[in-house]
């Protein structure tokens, strides 16, 4: 993108981007309202509003306050976290196959949770979320260290991606072995694996909130540096970027965001695989715009899928991860077919 060619149009480009951002924000608001009102017991929007502002203790007010709101907030946090983390991950590895779990975050969390169930007898979700977070952090620090020494002078995209895949496969194998030998762990694991934001409660939201906020801040700080890095490491170095630092900040952001999301909601990491491709087709490759677009699309898709999962198979529910794949993936394939994909 040459500066001279763009300069006359940059004003309209900025307008277009702001407009798109507003549209996406609107979509998020609509899905939030849907998420609070729709379910096996529908609550009219006015009633839901009353439940938030002047709770009267009626049944629908209790449902809204204790079930729907925590579920919606968790959906917003997870959607933001996974969308942004996915875009960062694909940017840093320059690989369209990279999902936010690529650094071993998802499998680290899964392994730690399953191990805590059989070794320490962890019973409640609240107990094993901490193990999940710890597992995610340890795994991704390990992968980053490995990628760091693997490449010359800093982790290169290929060594980072391969090291992450190798560590993930290793941890997944250990998890499978435990799960095959222990039926109780298997029972927890299969539901965690399918991914859900239901029945988590406000405690879980408060637990993961600080991690998501910190991760989002780091991600936005990382965006300009990542733009420079996508010109190639030599050019970035010439522009005065400290490559190791930029990569480190990016990896920290991905770890915090993904670790929090997968520990609370299970393996929804593929949200982060698909959403950035959708966002990139709207924003182009400028990460300062790509990251917010990814986050907002992540929220809208996740909440929409969750709402559909509640109504599509009464009286039960379909896990949000399943709905997302069935809904998002065909859309994604259609998009890929329709236009030339924006390359990383």
């Amino acid at each position: 993108m040459g500066a001279t060619a763009v300069a006359p149009r940059s004003h309209t480009l900025r307008h277009r981007r702001l407009l798109l951002l507003t549209v996406l924000l609107g979509a998020v608001c609509v899905t939030v309202v849907l998420s609070v009102t729709v379910g096996s017991r529908p609550v009219p929007p006015a009633d839901a509003w009353q439940a938030l502002t002047a709770p009267a203790g009626t049944e629908s007010h209790i449902i809204v306050r204790s079930l729907r709101v925590p579920r919606t907030v968790l959906g917003v946090l997870a959607g933001l976290a996974l969308g942004v983390a996915g875009a960062l991950m694909q940017g840093h590895t320059r690989n369209p196959l990279a999902d936010p779990g690529l650094l071993g975050v998802t499998q680290g969390a899964a392994f730690a949770m399953v191990a805590s169930i059989i070794l320490l007898g962890a019973q409640s979700l609240l107990a094993y979320i901490w193990f999940g977070l710890a597992g995610a952090l340890i795994a991704s620090v390990g992968v980053f260290a490995l990628g760091m020494v693997g490449g010359r002078g800093g982790p290169t995209p290929v060594t980072l991606a391969l090291a992450g895949t190798a560590v993930s496969a290793f941890l997944y194998a250990l998890t499978s072995a435990i799960v095959l030998l222990d039926e109780q762990a298997m029972d927890v694991f299969r539901f965690w694996q399918a991914g859900s934001i239901a029945a988590r409660g406000p405690d879980v939201v408060w637990q993961v909130l600080p991690f998501v906020v910190a991760g989002l801040v780091l991600a936005m700080v990382n965006a300009p540096g990542l733009n420079a890095l996508s010109l190639g490491e030599d050019v970035a170095r010439g522009l005065g970027q400290r490559i190791g630092l930029t990569r480190g900040v990016g990896v920290a952001a991905v770890t915090l965001l993904t670790g929090a999301a997968v520990a609370a909601c299970g393996s929804l990491a593929f949200v982060g695989l698909i959403v950035p491709h959708l966002a990139r087709s709207l924003s182009g490759t400028d990460h300062r715009w790509l990251l917010p677009y990814s986050g907002l699309i992540g929220v809208a898709l996740l909440l929409l899928a969750d709402v559909i999962g509640r109504v599509v198979a009464p009286p039960g529910e379909l896990e949000v991860g399943v709905v997302l794949a069935l809904l998002g993936a065909p859309f994604f394939v259609a998009l890929v077919r329709r236009r030339k994909p924006v390359r990383l």
């Binding site: 299969r190 698909i274 399943v322 993936a329 890929v336 994909p341």
Partner: peptide
């Protein structure tokens, strides 16, 4: 091919997860 492959694999994998639940 890679991008379409990701999409289709995501559908299959999640159907598998759902069948397992």
């Amino acid at each position: 091919l890679v991008l379409v492959g990701i999409g289709v694999a995501a559908v299959f994998t999640n159907v598998k997860f759902w069948l397992l639940t």
